[in-house]
Design a protein around this nucleic acid. Structure first.
Lengths: 103, 103
DNA sequence: CGTCGGAGGTTTGTTTCGTAAACTAGGTTC
DNA sequence: GAACCTAGTTTACGAAACAAACCTCCGACG
C-alpha cells in the first residue's frame, strides 16, 4: 500500500531524559564534575551516579576520579563515541521533528 | 556563577519512544487504525493497546470503535490538545538539539 | 457442529527508571 | 572522640515499558 512512512529507530541510551540532559551538559561544557551535574540536572545523587555509570559502561563518557583538598572529585567528559552517538541522535530526532507540523 | 544553562523539561508522555513514534504517525496521517499502527510501528499488540490507552487517557488522542464487515475496527486521531502537546514538544526538543554541536 | 483466523485486549514476567534511605570513606569541629 | 559534613555508591522498592502468551468475540469454512 505504498506507505513506507517509517519513523527511524531511536537510540534509547541517549534519548532517555535524564541521560539526554547529562549528555547535553557535557556536550556544552566539555567536562563537568559530579557536584556540578548534581546541582544543574536536578537529579538525585543516586540516580546521577547510576546514569553516569550507565553512560560510562556504554562507552559514551569517560570518568576521572581524583582527590582535591583531600576530597574525592569525579569528573566526566564525552568520549569520541559519545560525541558521535549524540550527533547521530541529533540527526535522527531532527528528522522526526521536521516531519511534524507547526514550526 | 552565571551558569543558568538549564536544559528544559521534557514532556515524557510524548518523549517516550513508542508513544513518540505513534504520535508521529498520527500527526502525519491524521487518523490511523489499530492494525495499521501495529504493522507500521513494530510494537507488540499488547504494548500498542496499552500505549494508545495511555495517550487516550492523557487526552492526546481520540479513539473511535466501530464494526466494519462485522469486525471491530479501532481508529485513532490526535485531539487538539495532542496536537498542541506535540508542537510544544517539538519546540522543546528543537531547543535542546540546537544547543548540541554539529549540524 | 467444530475449529480456524482476525481484531482487540488482558495477563504474566522481565527490564529499566526513579526516589529514598543506608552505607562507605574520608575530613572538619568541638 | 563523638557528631557532623562531603562525595559517592549501593540497596530496596515501586512504577512504567515491553514482549510473548493467552483469552474473547464473531464470522467463515468444511
Amino acid at each position: 500500500m505504498s506507505d513506507d512512512l517509517v519513523v527511524p529507530e531511536i537510540d534509547t541510551m541517549v534519548h532517555e531524559p535524564a541521560r539526554l540532559r547529562l549528555l547535553t551538559y557535557l556536550s556544552l561544557l566539555e567536562r563537568a564534575d559530579f557536584v556540578y551535574l548534581l546541582g544543574q540536572s536536578g537529579l538525585s545523587k543516586g540516580n546521577l551516579s547510576v546514569q553516569m555509570g550507565n553512560l560510562a559502561e556504554a562507552g559514551l563518557v569517560r570518568v576521572e576520579k581524583e582527590f582535591v583538598n583531600n576530597r574525592p572529585r569525579t569528573t566526566y567528559a564525552l568520549t569520541t563515541e559519545g560525541r558521535a552517538r549524540l550527533a547521530a541522535y541529533r540527526r535522527t530526532l531532527a528528522a522526526i521533528l521536521d516531519a511534524l507540523p507547526a514550526g
